[in-house]
Amino acid sequence: MTDLSNALATVSADLQSLDLTPENEAIRLIEAEIARLNQAIGAAQHRCGEIDAEQSELRHPELQGAAIANALLAEIPAREVSANTRKEDDLREERKGLYSGIRELRERVRAEEQKLPAIRQQALERVRSLAAPLVAALQDEAQDAAARITEAYAALAALSFTAGAGRLEERAASAAVAGIFDGRLLMGHAVPVPDDIDAVLSQLANKGAALPFRRLSQISPPTR
């Protein structure tokens, strides 16, 4: 088996046996707590709606100061005026307390939600560690392929320079090689022309004035 085949088999087995029970249980508990908090928020919001309905049913809401005096002058019984006022005050205070509780509950929901990314990141780190051998094997494969592409480009560049052949193909390969060096998949300042290509082109060395011979031994990596 090749290194890549070994890495595929090893990483596949490791990922299959990966047990994320601790992380999943932690998330389950957090989500259960979030659900409990949201249920409490819903109950508080429902009560706020009931308070709004009760306030709308009061015949004399918000009777304070001059408004109370006017109500008394209108011969509304003092007991009814004060009862409505107390009821309105009680409802207002209750709703104020509910709003405060809802804000606190929402803060707790946010605090619980903020725990989730760290747990998921922990699980991802475990996967990343197990996948490292496959990453390394694929990097080797990519570098080998990049080296072959770069060698082919150098050969095309030599053919184009010396024999005037393959110029379109050279330009196409140039873009690929530029990406290889820009992405630092390969490092270096010059790419040698393959020996076998140099040997083939050397057959043109003594063809006379009709074909001046130009030899290219290496090329600089192209840039985008």
Score class of each variant (00 low, 15 high):
Ser217Arg: 14
Tyr153Cys: 03
Ala172Gln: 00
Ser202Leu: 03
Ala199Met: 06
Ala165Glu: 14
Leu4Glu: 07
Ala209Gln: 15
Ser12Gly: 03
Leu130Arg: 11
Glu104Phe: 08
Tyr99Glu: 03
Gln122Pro: 00
Ser129Gln: 04
Ile197Leu: 10
Ala210Arg: 08
Glu104Thr: 06
Asp19Glu: 05
Leu18Ala: 12
Ile68Gln: 08
Glu23Gln: 10
Glu170Lys: 08
Ala35Pro: 03
Leu37Ser: 10
Arg79Lys: 13
Thr162Glu: 00
Gly97Gln: 11
Lys87Arg: 10
Ser129Val: 04
Arg59Ala: 15
Ala137Ile: 13
Leu18Arg: 06
Gln16Pro: 00
Leu204Lys: 07
Pro222Met: 10
Arg103Met: 12
Ile27Met: 11
Ala205Ser: 13
Leu204Pro: 06
Leu130Asn: 04
Gly164Ile: 05
Ala71Tyr: 03
Met187Tyr: 12
Ala83Trp: 12
Lys207Tyr: 06
Asn6Gln: 15
Leu15Pro: 00
Ala173Pro: 00
Phe181Asp: 00
Leu18Phe: 10
Ala71Pro: 04
Leu204Ser: 05
Ala74Met: 04
Ile119Leu: 09
Arg106Ser: 03
Ala118Asp: 02
Glu125Gly: 01
Glu94Ser: 15
Ala165Ile: 11
Leu29Asp: 07
Asn6Arg: 15
Ala35Gly: 02
Arg110Trp: 05
Ala205Leu: 02
Gln45Lys: 10
Asp89Asn: 08
Tyr153Ala: 05
Ala199Arg: 12
Ser100His: 09
Ala178His: 04
Phe181Pro: 00
Gln45Ile: 08
Gly49Phe: 07
Arg86Phe: 10
Arg92Ala: 14
Leu72Phe: 12
Gln143Ile: 12
Gln64Tyr: 14
Gly208Leu: 02
Met1Leu: 12
Arg120Phe: 00
Ala7Met: 10
Arg110Leu: 13
Ala26Cys: 01
Glu113Gln: 15
Ala176Cys: 04
Arg79Ile: 09
Tyr99His: 01
Arg79Asp: 14
Gln143Trp: 11
Gly101Asp: 11
Arg120Met: 02
Thr21Cys: 13
Arg36Cys: 01
Ile102Gln: 09
Thr150Phe: 10
Cys48Val: 15
Thr150Ala: 12
Ala152Glu: 12
Lys96Val: 00
Arg28Thr: 08
Val177Leu: 03
Val193Lys: 01
Ala67Pro: 09
Asp140Val: 15
Gln121His: 13
Leu91Arg: 06
Glu33Ser: 04
Ala9Gly: 09
Thr21Ala: 14
Ser129Lys: 06
Ser12Trp: 00
Leu73His: 10
Leu130Ala: 04
Ala178Ile: 06
Pro133Ile: 05
Arg95Lys: 14
Val200Leu: 15
Gly208Phe: 03
